[in-house]
Simulated assay, not measured.
Amino acid sequence: MKNLFYFFSALLISPFMIGQVSGNVNYQNKYQTNNTIDVNFPSHEGIVASVKGLANVKADSYTAIFSTTQTGKTTKEVNELIDQRITKSLTEIKLNKGVETFVDMISFVPVYEYEVEKKVFNRKTYNEVPVGFELKKNIHIKFSDPNQLNDFISILSNYEIYDLVRVDYFSNALETIKKEMMNKAKLLIQEKIKNYELLLGETFANAEKRIADDFVVNLPVEMYNSYEAYNSSSLNLKKSANVNQTNKSTTLYYQPVFNKEFDFIINPAVLEPVIQVQYEVKIFINREKEKKQTAKTDREYILVTPNGDLKPINVNSSKPVY
């Protein structure tokens, strides 16, 4: 009896354990097909040899953009208040080594509100009147150590700057990585073509060939998905029943391109958000054209002379050979 209890307990717990391993994202089936690179060829009869490569490139510099807003009754007040906040925060941020900053002017507009005009025998009239100004600026911070971002957020929050708009990733190694990917793809596609020749027992040396290739670069800011983690109860209620649903927490997570569709991968293990470079090369081999050319070349034409002699004709020449 005790063994049966443990057995059924294991059955009840095991689905929960599997769910924890796969992640809560599977509650809503948020995993989607990756938009991986795909180089298309015109439709022709023949053989297409293709190679796909993926490179995960760690960024060597970052740019974080924070947005700040200031309101006030006069233009002087607005400018003084926002400049004080930005200047003091950037003075602390620049104490970090290798940090560069830039302040981007976004907008400076008047702010309006409605004033009620009361009349004895008429309806209320709402007039829009200016009450102040709103100034928006963005702070750009360039840095090389990703751990510094937490320090920047802490400093800026002390001056009521909370809005982290985005973080851009940059790498100086992209051109080198692209050349490495092209060299790897060249060796692999040559190996594939040789394998096709062995399987078919023929050579493609004289066949018509066409080639196409392309790169796609995916930045981390483009690769975030969202989902809501919850499990709601289903109730059999009347249509007239009032149901008040609570707001669900939305989670964002980094979803890189899966590495399952590629012939080779550079730096396959991904721990942090990275720049992902995809490369694909395709070679189209027109075997039909080669066979027609071979068949035409193998034909022999014989001319019978008036004397009854047989003379071969050179098909590549306009004149017969006597």
Rank of each mutant, 00 (worst) to 15 (best):
K2N: 09
L4Q: 06
L4V: 14
L4R: 03
F5K: 02
I18T: 11
Y27R: 15
Q28N: 11
Q28Y: 12
K30C: 09
T33A: 04
N34E: 09
N35F: 15
T36S: 09
T36P: 04
I37D: 15
V39N: 03
E45A: 13
S50P: 00
V51N: 03
L54H: 08
L54I: 07
D60I: 00
A64N: 09
F66D: 01
T68L: 12
Q70Y: 15
G72I: 03
K73C: 01
E77K: 06
E77D: 01
R85T: 10
I86H: 09
S89K: 09
K94W: 07
L95P: 02
K97C: 06
E100L: 12
F102L: 02
F102S: 11
M105K: 13
M105C: 05
P110H: 10
V120S: 10
F121D: 02
K124D: 04
L135P: 06
N138I: 05
I139V: 12
L149K: 07
F152L: 13
I155A: 02
L156N: 04
S157C: 04
Y162N: 05
D163Q: 05
L164I: 09
V165F: 00
R166M: 14
D168W: 00
F170V: 07
S171A: 11
N172V: 01
K179C: 06
M181D: 12
N183R: 06
N183I: 07
K184L: 08
A185P: 01
L188C: 09
N195T: 11
N195Y: 03
L199Y: 10
L199H: 13
E208Q: 14
R210M: 12
A212E: 06
D214K: 02
F215G: 13
V217D: 12
V221K: 14
Y224F: 15
S226T: 11
N231D: 09
S232D: 08
S232H: 03
S234N: 04
L235S: 14
A241Y: 04
A241R: 13
N242M: 14
N244Q: 07
T246P: 01
T246E: 11
T251R: 03
V257K: 10
V257Q: 05
F264E: 12
A269E: 01
E272N: 05
P273Y: 07
I275C: 11
Y279H: 10
N286I: 02
K291W: 08
K292W: 05
K292V: 07
D298F: 14
D298Q: 12
R299P: 00
L303W: 04
V304Q: 09
D309P: 04
L310Y: 08
I313R: 15
S318M: 04
Y322R: 06
